[in-house]
């Protein structure tokens, strides 16, 4: 088992409003799984992902990553956890605008112990010929694939993706999803993808439905589709 959460809740303040983002979530995730977190916006998907990724800690409840207790971890431990085990892909890519594709990947490989060469990571997402392009010179889909390359280059144990296709059109979205599936398949990385797009769920091993900060259903997908077969 990779992740094990029990009764996690998260409350935070947005300006003058108190938001209950999660209300008692119990969840187990397994090695090599491709999991999709599905739910409308505001359902708590991102919060859950952030907690799994060590970007945030729950207000109450327990989170374990293998044998590490993340809910009680301090800042330094979380930093090390992220550095050693987690790869992130964000909806808006979060590339460093002043660095080229290759350098954006190097940003992560330089602080990892057993990384892929940045070039190989970029080849894995079919961007071997765009190494020296700056983010501003790449299309949205290309930028997102750089972000994926950046996330997988360190050979993370888990790959967490927050609406990776949210800002992309169908065609580019499919290319990005293919890249994710390929990484999951070839490197065996546990992959969690957040989306509110039901179609994407069809390529997952398991689909976890969230609504209003709670898990409403978990379905196992026995008929896994490839990204190319999806349509939305």
């Amino acid at each position: 088992m990779v992740f094990h959460t029990r009764g996690i809740s998260k409350t935070y303040r947005m300006g003058e409003v108190e938001v209950h983002a999660l209300r008692g979530v119990d969840l187990d995730l397994f090695e090599g799984e491709f999991v999709v977190l599905l739910g409308p916006s505001g359902s708590g998907k991102s919060t859950l992902l952030n907690i799994l990724g060590g970007l945030d800690v729950p207000t109450t409840g327990a989170v374990r990553y293998k044998d590490q207790n993340l809910s009680a971890a301090d800042e330094a431990l979380l930093t090390r956890y992220r550095r050693e085990h987690v790869g992130f892909v964000f909806q808006f890519y979060n590339l460093i605008p002043s660095l080229t594709a290759q350098e954006n990947v190097a940003l992560v490989t330089e602080i990892s112990s057993k990384p892929l060469p940045p070039e190989d990571a970029l080849k894995l997402v079919d961007l071997g010929d765009r190494l020296d392009h700056f983010p501003a010179q790449l299309s949205g889909g290309e930028q997102q694939r750089v972000a994926i390359a950046r996330a997988i280059a360190k050979r993370p144990d888990v790959l967490l993706c927050d609406e990776p296709t949210g800002a992309l059109d169908l065609k580019t979205g499919v290319i990005v999803l293919e890249a994710l599936a390929r990484v999951n398949r070839e490197l065996g990385t546990t992959t969690v993808v957040i989306t509110h797009n039901v179609d994407i769920a069809r390529m997952a091993d398991r689909v976890i439905h969230l609504s209003d900060g709670q898990i409403t259903a978990i379905e196992v997908n026995n008929d896994k589709k490839s990204a190319a077969e999806l349509a939305w």
Binding site: T79, R82, L107
Partner: peptide, 14 residues
């Protein structure tokens, strides 16, 4: 701010 957050997300120390 966001770039700092991104670096932190990748595990760069404070």
């Amino acid at each position: 701010r966001e770039q700092i957050a991104t670096l932190k997300a990748f595990g760069y120390t404070n």
